[in-house]
Amino acid sequence: MTEVLIDLVLLGMLAMTALRVIFLKDLFAVVMLFSIFSFVSALIFINLDAVDVAFTEAAVGAGISTVLMLGTIALTGRTEKKNSHSSILHLVVVCVTGAALIYGTMDMPPFGNADNPIHQHVAPRYIEDSPKEVGLPNIVTSVLASYRGFDTLGETVVVFAAMIGVLSLLGTARPTNKRATPESGLAKHRVLHVVAKIIIPFIILFALYVQFHGDYGPGGGFQAGVIAAAALILYALVFGASFAHRIVSPRQLEVFAPLGVLLYASVGLVGMIKGANFLDYNVLASTAAAGQHYGIIIIELGVGLTVFAAMLGLFYAFSNQVERSNVQ
């Protein structure tokens, strides 16, 4: 009962935020509201017990997407362009689509019903057999990394492709010739410098925890990559991008991103060499369960590496553009 109430309140907040986002003209305020939107949707996921999804939303939504959207605004300007076209046709299209979608949900089985088709097909097998076959406490990780390993490989390739796409649009960050100076960051905020220095090691430590604890609790390679990238983004924001380039340079990122994908795919190839199917981890070690363990740890590392490189690469590309447009 309480959970239903909380869900309703959260959905109401979500709808109000979304409506306000539509009508606001100041894009900076819109970005602020988007971060609230992300907070609320993560809370809804938590309330639905989808801890791993909530984790992803938490890692991406509040930090990195705010940073990237603010970077976009810094490049394009802060107010929305006046739209002179009549929007009646759009409204009709949206209303018809929405009505069709709502009509489609009429036939869906009731929410949370145990007889739903989704609970009949593969889910019972995952829940009953994965402790024996894979042996991880977090079933989500075993589904994502082992049963649907091929899907996750595809997703990692998508992240990699997205990075290539953005870099080809914005251009890669050139290593700057000028020496790194403290003036390039938030030089006047001394308190921020001190606090950032204390916080950044915790963020990196927590990223490592999420990376290697993902087999047992919520988390995994994707979330860990995002959190580690967030640590360096914080460093770059507070101290200036040229300092961050000295730790992880854009060129290194261009190596890391494909390396992660290749690491993932090579686990599959090793399985093939040993005479099993692509991405079959059972043959990687003497026993099937140990093989699953090795396989999952290595592919999570690959995912983490690619996501880290992609997120940080995006940020470098944006900050490079912002700095260049500021100089001109």
Binding site: M32, S35, F55, A62, V67, A74, L186, L192, G219, I227
Partner: peptide, 26 residues
């Protein structure tokens, strides 16, 4: 295990605030 998500938010939302400040400087 929800505490893990709480830690992520405590760490990450700070980055959003810093980004806002950086944006104001620009």
């Amino acid at each position: 295990d929800f505490l893990d998500i709480a830690i992520v938010y405590a760490l990450i939302s700070f980055i959003g605030m810093v980004a806002v400040l950086r944006f104001f400087e620009y």
